[in-house]
Design a protein around this nucleic acid. Structure first.
Lengths: 253, 253
DNA sequence: CGTGCGTTTGATTCTTCTCAACGTCCGTGG
DNA sequence: CCACGGACGTTGAGAAGAATCAAACGCACG
């Protein structure tokens, strides 16, 4: 998404679809952001049994689709995804953007099939975690059980935040909140908090924020006029983060 | 919410705040809607140890507040709740309405404190489930573990549906979707699917749907003019459920 | 019987959507 | 190497939807 400060994240090492290669969680530099948060070295070794393989997903490909049988969760290792749910008439709503260390597929547990599409927005790779295995291991492994529950709960809290955004905020406030959220997550991954390259189109941003693509474009232009952002297509530089923060804090005020 | 067809649900039997009384899940007629879904009689006995007490919550009272330490989940036994998250400036967003058999408090797991307010919209009672106990029991009790994961996942899927509603639908479509969802849930609990009494104000409906209360009121009036609903204050009769269904299916079309 | 909250309805304003045209970037093939 | 095409992005003008402001009504409760 920007200039990596943690250069040891493999940028793109795979080209096939399935890799039986084991990748040790203990040596993965995403361990502080991913499922293993809070696990010590001994715990991490036990966790490694969970991740049986990696899968690489080229840009534009689906990791899974609405209706697919649910079997596994996916931890993003490299790359960037969107998830979207479709309405009966064909239009859809982007429900989230996922980056390294974030978990995909939690929606599938509810009825053994996925309820959204997950699409790679750039060439990506994920760790495949068989859900049965996770259930089994978390039964005898308290820390993992709790961590998994936390991740699901965090997703619920995040969704509630999006509802607040969609229900109460105006276009400028929504885009400001979106950009602040992105930069914070990038920063947690060692990237610059002021410079980012958007991996999604204006339409995808609009779908996520409940806006039309023209409104997203106009709002970017306004932020540029106001000196809050520098916008060169998808290359965004945040010039005045506090202005964005003010917009979010004063939302619906 | 309407005429009960399952009259053995205790209507309102408690007045104190805490009741050490045990209520057997096995004999609770909500067991098909609540945490015990899919458990057999033997399983149910083991589950009973979980629910240590009931708590009654008078109309208007908080079950928990944003920031409260998280310790327990709550299964609605009787009554009706809303949950809402607050923005930094004081305005808030209703994130859901919960009725008998539904679980409250899942948001708290993520960081050991609640991230929303839960308020009773009528005199209510809940079963208190200590989260530590649930964690422990679900470790040795596969069916419960899976059922709990399903409930969390279902909440995530529900939230995504609300995002779709807030992001893509117009006022009429939102209210139609809201009413259909309510009547379906009431029907599952043995109430009439065409007649209901709203427990929440126009403002609370509006907050949930991302609309102002005047817009909610106007939309109710329009549905009445169109012969889709009969609206007498909070007493709603659905005259043409298919018209509501059409609005939802054609959403954003 | 009055008071107050919740609701309805109307007039107006504001934001965002819609429709349309044009511009830019980038990969492809001549 | 350049021309072309297509996807993506920007900008403008007008329309539609919902918000806002304001007033009056009804019902429940004390």
């Amino acid at each position: 998404m920007s200039v990596p400060i943690h250069p040891d994240v493999p940028a793109s090492s795979c080209s096939g679809t399935l890799e039986p290669l084991k990748v040790a969680c203990a040596s993965c530099n995403l361990r502080e952001l991913c499922l293993p948060v809070g696990l010590n070295a001994a715990d991490l070794q036990r966790l490694d049994g969970l991740v049986e393989k990696r899968r690489s997903v080229p840009r534009g490909d689906h990791l899974f689709r609405n209706g697919d049988r649910f079997e596994a969760l996916y931890a993003v290792r490299t790359g960037f995804f969107k998830t979207c749910v479709g309405s009966e008439d064909g239009r859809d709503q982007v429900t989230g953007f996922q980056m390294a260390g974030e978990l995909l597929g939690l929606d599938g547990i509810s009825s053994d099939q996925h309820h959204c599409d997950a699409v790679a927005l750039e060439d990506s790779s994920v760790c495949v975690i068989q859900y049965r295995d996770l259930e089994e291991l978390s039964r005898e492994f308290t820390v993992l059980q709790h961590q998994f529950h936390k991740i699901m709960s965090r997703e619920i809290v995040r969704d509630h935040g999006v509802m607040l955004l969609l229900g109460n905020m105006r276009a400028e406030e929504r885009l400001a909140a979106f950009l602040l959220n992105l930069t914070q997550r990038l920063q947690a991954r060692g990237f610059s908090s002021s410079s980012l390259v958007l991996r999604m189109t204006r339409e995808e941003i609009g779908s996520y924020l409940g806006l039309k693509l023209e409104t997203v474009s106009r709002t970017f232009s306004k932020f540029q006029e106001d000196g809050v952002l520098d916008v060169k297509q998808r290359q965004i530089t945040v010039l005045d983060p506090q202005a964005l923060q003010r917009l979010v804090s004063n939302a619906a005020g």
